[in-house]
């Protein structure tokens, strides 16, 4: 059983996640898209772990999950505070840091 389809799927999911980050404006949805991208990477890690018969890939996926969890916690807290002060969850509204 070749892992090529898994890799292709991983690439497709990653790309879809990236496009989602670029086009959606709701900060929460943007975060979901980031999660899709991370999961696509995880799929690649796990697939390659099987390809090489080495569990390090699974360990890497595990770490990605841990970091993703931490990131989501902090990120959502930030979204909360922004929403509290601006009554908006749009990433475009937080655009004061510019020229």
């Amino acid at each position: 059983m070749s892992i090529t389809p898994y890799i292709v799927l991983s690439a497709i999911l990653f790309t879809i996640g990236a496009v989602g980050v670029l086009t959606r404006r709701n900060a929460i949805v943007v975060f979901m898209c980031v999660e899709i991208m991370l999961n696509a990477c995880n799929l690649g890690f796990v697939a390659f772990a099987r390809q090489h018969g080495n569990l390090d890939g699974q360990i890497a996926a595990f770490f990605v999950m841990v970091v993703a969890a931490a990131e989501v916690v902090v990120g959502l807290a930030i979204i909360m505070t922004i929403f509290r002060s601006r009554r908006s969850a749009s990433v475009d509204d937080a655009s004061l840091l510019k020229y």
């Binding site: 090529t4 292709v8 690439a11 990653f14 790309t15 670029l22 772990a49 099987r50 018969g53 569990l55």
Partner: peptide, 29 residues
């Protein structure tokens, strides 16, 4: 974004589809 996404996705898919990875070792061991 769409153009970039399409080009990136196509490239990745094509590359992933083209490469040969050899026999799968598997994780039984």
């Amino acid at each position: 974004s769409i153009v970039f996404g399409l080009v990136l996705g196509l490239t990745l898919v094509l590359v992933a589809g083209q490469i040969t990875l050899g026999t799968v070792v598997g994780l039984e061991e």
